[in-house]
């Protein structure tokens, strides 16, 4: 096949050659985990591992997309090709979704070095779509670096994005009681950089100060020498203040990942999480397809209080 000069290049080959339409189509196949998508990833994956994958998470309306647009400006000046994966929740009732993050990133429409792709979370937890990281791999293979994954996170949900990104930016919004909220949920810990957006608002300085204090307590409690000191950066998309500080902090974190060896560990953790998600989905799929009757029978027994759910699960797993 390879020798046939008339052979049309596959979607994956065209993607590697810089064809944006092919890339967009590959992303759809990967998102839907089709056979074609899996084959494309087989071809693309050896070309990955170069991109800095950055997660940005925080409450809806917190200024994430606006901030990403500012990042694009900085990174384009550095000559880097930027990809954005913007994930918004699907409606649990209809399965539909409104994906509105592009609105804030429109000025790059004529720039081939910027690619924005919206994804619906499709009932996958943590504000994340199931195949988000696989989509990032395709961007990586196509030469995009960095790749930003924007997700909506409120409280505990945010934890899962940290497993899919090398650097996680946690957004805190002034005037919403966010600092205290995140502290309760324990999600502050997932931020490699804490970002106070809308820094032009009067409450912003106080929130940044509170976050620094909280971080100091955290540091005193259990940090090692050579560890990453989580910076708190206040930004305003209106005045432009803090944007350079933030992109510098992101670059420093990447540098630190490389020099400390923590980066290799993160990559391992990301891959472990990716495999684990697929195993879970695969098992659940098999459970509902091949073991459907068995499952229903077990549910009956649990309903009639003859069996605990734990025993039912054991029985299913041992039979698989």
């Amino acid at each position: 096949m390879k020798d046939d000069p008339d052979r049309k290049p596959s979607l994956a080959e065209a993607t590697l050659a810089g064809d944006r339409r092919a890339l967009a189509r590959v992303l759809t196949h990967i998102e839907n985990d089709t056979d074609l998508g899996r084959r494309a990833l087989d071809t693309l994956f050896p070309h990955t591992g170069n991109a800095h994958i950055i997660g940005i998470t925080g409450p809806p309306g917190g200024g994430k997309s606006t901030l990403v647009n500012e990042f694009i400006r900085t990174w384009r000046k550095q000559g880097r090709q930027v990809a954005v994966i913007a994930v918004d929740p699907s409606s649990p009732l209809t399965g539909g979704a409104t994906l509105g993050d592009r609105i804030r990133m429109q000025e790059w429409f004529a720039d081939d070095g910027v690619f924005v792709r919206s994804m619906a979370s499709r009932r996958f937890g943590g504000g994340l779509a199931q195949n988000t990281l696989a989509v990032a791999h395709a961007f990586d293979a196509a030469g995009f670096d960095p790749i930003v994954i924007e997700t909506v996170g409120t409280g505990q949900d945010e934890v899962s994005i940290a497993a899919l990104a090398m650097t996680t930016l946690l957004i805190q919004v002034p005037g919403t009681g966010d600092g205290v909220q995140s502290l309760k949920a324990g999600s502050l810990e997932i931020g490699d950089v804490l970002v106070v957006t809308k820094g032009d608002r009067p409450e912003a300085a106080e929130l940044a100060r509170d976050l620094r204090n909280i971080r100091m307590i955290g540091l005193a409690a259990g940090s090692e020498v050579g560890g990453w000191e989580v910076p708190v950066v206040r930004t305003s998309a209106i005045t432009g203040d803090g944007i350079d500080n933030l992109t510098t902090a992101i670059a420093s974190h990447r540098q630190w990942l490389q020099t400390s060896g923590d980066g290799a560990q993160r990559v391992r953790a990301m891959i472990a999480a990716e495999i684990s998600v697929r195993v879970q989905q695969g098992l659940l799929g098999r459970l509902s397809e091949q073991n459907h009757d068995h499952l229903e029978a077990l549910i009956d027994r649990v309903v009639s209080r003859n069996l605990t759910a734990a025993r039912a699960a054991d029985e299913l797993l041992s039979g698989m």
Binding site: S90, S91, T94, G96, T98, Q106
Partner: peptide, 16 residues
């Protein structure tokens, strides 16, 4: 329009 298509189960990219 965007809302109606979403409610019909579609994934709607809204660009304003």
């Amino acid at each position: 329009m965007a809302r109606a298509f979403r409610d019909a189960g579609m994934e709607v990219i809204y660009t304003g």
